[in-house]
Amino acid sequence: MESSDDEKDGIYGNFVPKELGHNFALNGTKFVDEVLNGQSERCLENFRMDKPVFYKLCDILQGKGLLRHTNRIKIEEQLAIFLFIIGHNLRTRAVQELFRYSGETISRHFNNVLNAIMAISLEFFQPPGSDVPPEITQDPRFYPYFKDCVGAVDGIHVPVMVGVDEQGPFRNKNGLLSQNVLAACSFDLKFHYVLAGWEGSASDLRVLNSALTRRNKLQVPEGRYYLVDNKYANMPGFIAPYLGVPYNSNEFPSGYHHQDAKELFNQRHFLLRNATDRIFGALKERFPILMSAPPYPLQTQVKLVVAACALHNYIRREKPDDMLFKKYEPQTALQIQESLALQEVEQAIKPVDTHDLEVAFEAEQPELSSQLRDSIATEMWEDYIRDLAVV
């Protein structure tokens, strides 16, 4: 028999949020009320967004008829349950002890909210506009050379939990179970497009091919392009770095004078494409459920990725300067260099395997893509040499 929304079971176990450490008698309703009646920072910490942003999302979901108040649990508490789970990577048992509802009630509202967000997720993904991004126009390293660039594309592996019989395809090159997620993003840290659910063993180029050929496909405006790294091919709509040329900024010491146009192009390409690292960093810090495999059906795990990206865009739109986003503002070249020195990076760019690339191009298009990259690099190099001569 289905349990009622006001069913309470269990007592607080080992998990006690610090806000509740002083009061074990609080139930979920009182906890949510305390957070929403407190400082906005508490809402950001617990529910991963500021209070006005939280309340507006409640209004949107209610106004579209996607969520409704029940006899015991208001929409605010339903959304809080969902955000608390994905924002703190908690399992149902820990959440039911905190909110003091049955596991069935927690699970039901979690899935209701997830499906509600999925229903409006496309509203939060906007394709690139016609204007040149200000991150390019306002930086002489990038303008006018990358004036036709609309963003960057990259892939990320999100841990996944699947049955033993399904594990083979989901095991990536590191031997871990994951789904390969492709994202196209803007330089102001918004997702243009997200494709989740591909097995971890799938190559990045194969996932990109899928994104370009499916019904709900990644669209690149005519005459524009995205930046991609060496996992992808240099092809129409996507500009990759030069192969066999230093790429990561830590390979260029401070004050280093580039030796040729390809070196200069690769470094500036890397600095601009760094937006993907920052957007993935912000996404995973806000919603750490993406950093470990949650014990949900595979379809739910795929939905969680898309929903998290949609919520990221919604928050970025409503509160672009919230405290978490501030941590991922554009870094200077020196800061990027210092941060990369702490990471394991590839010292050489390996040729990409293009056998998965099935998109039909005119015979001359790949050559035109190479010519476009060369023309950008040449213009950039000529200005660089002239500026050095002036100094």
Rank of each mutant, 00 (worst) to 15 (best):
Y143H: 12
K173L: 12
G163R: 07
R215V: 13
P241H: 09
P169I: 06
G223T: 02
D204P: 07
R206L: 14
Q219D: 12
E222V: 10
V220E: 09
Y145G: 00
R214P: 00
P159G: 08
V162Q: 13
P159I: 00
E222M: 05
Q179F: 02
P159K: 08
G244T: 07
L177H: 04
A196R: 02
D229T: 04
V194S: 06
A183T: 10
S203F: 01
W198T: 14
R141L: 08
Y145D: 05
E222Y: 08
L208Q: 06
H157S: 08
D165S: 15
P159N: 08
P236R: 11
K217Q: 07
P159T: 03
I156N: 05
N180S: 08
F146E: 04
D204M: 04
G151C: 02
R215P: 09
S210W: 01
A152P: 01
V162R: 12
Q219I: 15
L177T: 04
V153I: 15
N234D: 12
S186K: 11
K173R: 15
L177R: 00
I156E: 13
V220L: 09
G223S: 05
V153C: 05
Y143E: 02
N230G: 10
M235C: 10
V153A: 06
V164E: 15
Y226E: 07
W198E: 12
R224K: 14
C149W: 00
R206Y: 14
L212C: 13
R224G: 02
Q219S: 15
N234Q: 09
L189Y: 01
D139T: 05
F142C: 08
Y143P: 09
N230P: 00
M235Q: 14
S210L: 02
V245A: 09
Y232S: 11
